[in-house]
Amino acid sequence: MDAIFESLGAYAPLVINGAKALVVLILGWIVAGAVSGLLRRRVNANPRIDDTIGSFAASIVKWVILLMVLIAVLGLFGIEATSLVAVLGAATLAVGLALQGTLSDLAAGFMLILFRPYKLGQYVDIGGTAGTVADLNLFFTELVTPDNVQIVVPNGQAWGAIITNYSHHDTRRLDLTFGIDYGDDADKAMKIIADLAARDARVFDDPEPWVRVTNLGDSSVDLTARLWCNAADYWDLKFELTKAIKEAFDAGGITIPYPHAVEIQKAG
Rank of each mutant, 00 (worst) to 15 (best):
A81C: 09
A81W: 13
A81N: 02
T82G: 03
T82D: 06
T82C: 00
V85C: 04
V85E: 08
A86G: 09
A86I: 10
V87S: 05
V87A: 11
L88G: 15
L88E: 04
L88Y: 04
L88P: 00
G89V: 05
G89Q: 06
A90C: 09
A91L: 15
A91Y: 13
A91S: 13
T92F: 13
T92D: 08
A94Y: 01
L97G: 04
L97V: 02
A98E: 05
A98N: 03
L99R: 09
L99M: 14
G101H: 10
G101F: 11
G101E: 08
G101Y: 12
T102G: 13
T102M: 15
L103G: 04
L103E: 01
D105C: 04
D105F: 02
D105T: 00
D105H: 01
L106V: 12
L106T: 11
L106E: 11
L106Y: 09
A107P: 02
A108Y: 05
A108V: 06
G109N: 02
G109V: 04
G109T: 03
G109H: 00
M111D: 03
M111P: 00
L112M: 08
I113Q: 02
I113P: 01
I113L: 13
L114T: 14
R116Y: 08
R116Q: 11
P117Q: 04
P117F: 07
P117N: 02
Y118A: 03
Y118W: 05
K119C: 12
L120I: 14
L120T: 06
G121C: 13
G121H: 10
Q122E: 13
Q122S: 10
Q122H: 07
Q122M: 07
